[in-house]
């Protein structure tokens, strides 16, 4: 069976150790995590995770079932790619010098990125987009020299009014 990118949304208890349980599960079961993003929800007792993993249909089923067995996982479900709004937030610190500045500004503007910090030798931009477009941005930004990079991992919600708890 073909391997593909799997996007999983999970509502979990906002306890210490929950992240450890989930990453341990992935390690134990030999599932590969591409990215894992977690943050508190409007209910302080709950956090929401977006996990991106690689695997075939059987692995996809197993990941969801195994996650659902964890007592701190309230809900785990695959968000099908075609039904998902996926975004990733990223900060990139680039080299700043007189020659590249104009082109760099063009790139930043083209990609809808936002400059959040400038120094004589660096420029830090904030980019939010689909994972693939962020990849493309990084590729383009490489020619200006990347000092450091910080990617948050994919976040996903269902398109339309559908929610994880209904899925």
């Amino acid at each position: 069976m073909a391997e593909e990118k799997i996007i999983i949304g999970a509502i979990v208890n906002n306890h210490f150790g929950v992240l450890m349980r989930i990453t341990e599960l992935f390690a134990k079961r030999c599932y590969n995590i591409d990215s894992l993003e977690v943050g508190i929800t409007d209910d302080p007792a709950l956090s929401r995770m977006t996990i991106v993993a690689m695997g075939d249909a059987l692995v996809r089923e197993q990941i969801v079932k195994q996650l659902s067995k964890l007592h701190d996982v309230r809900r785990a479900a695959v968000i099908p790619k075609e039904k998902a709004n996926v975004r990733e937030h990223m900060l990139i610190k680039l080299c700043n010098d007189e020659n590249g500045n104009a082109e760099l500004t063009a790139l930043v503007n083209d990609c809808g990125a936002k400059v959040i910090d400038i120094s004589s030798r660096s420029i830090t931009v904030e980019v939010t987009g689909e994972v693939e477009s962020n990849d493309a941005f990084i590729k383009s930004a490489k020619e200006f020299g990347i000092l450091e990079i910080c990617r948050a991992g994919a976040q996903a919600l269902h398109r339309g009014s559908e929610c994880l708890l209904d899925a």
Binding site: N13, H15, D42, A45, S68, L70, H71, V73, R74
Partner: peptide
């Protein structure tokens, strides 16, 4: 509604906080 549910859960916190058994399984 969400506010009422929050106050309800707060009143439980001393004895029954974060009660969650994965009953679905």
């Amino acid at each position: 509604d969400s506010q009422t549910s929050k106050t309800a859960s707060q009143s439980n916190t001393t004895t029954e906080s974060s009660t969650h058994i994965n009953i679905s399984s």
